[in-house]
């Protein structure tokens, strides 16, 4: 299982690109951290999600 923003998903084996394109995330507006390290956008295609990975997908919101 791969944890994305706290939710366990059965997507091990997919690349990050494959996973993201199956969602409604706007790729231009997000940043991804995998097991504590930022994944540069250029690496999404070659980043294969492993069982036990933990990812954060973040974006900007209003704030002070």
């Amino acid at each position: 299982m791969v944890k994305i923003n706290g939710t366990e998903l059965d997507i091990a084996g997919q690349t990050l690109s494959e996973y993201l394109s199956s969602t409604d995330y706007n790729i231009k507006r997000i940043a991804v951290e995998r097991n504590g390290d930022i994944v540069p956008k250029a690496m999404y295609g070659e980043t294969v999600l492993q069982d036990g990975d933990s990812l954060e997908v973040v974006g900007f919101v209003g704030g002070g």
Partner: peptide, 29 residues
């Protein structure tokens, strides 16, 4: 203009960056 960073929503219909005029410097907190 300041902004915050949070977990992104998959179903996000609008993004704050689309509402900030060009040329304004972003200051994430």
């Amino acid at each position: 203009i300041t902004l915050a960073v949070r977990r992104a929503n998959t179903k996000e219909e609008e993004n704050i960056l689309d509402y900030i005029p060009e040329g304004v410097t972003l200051l994430p907190n």
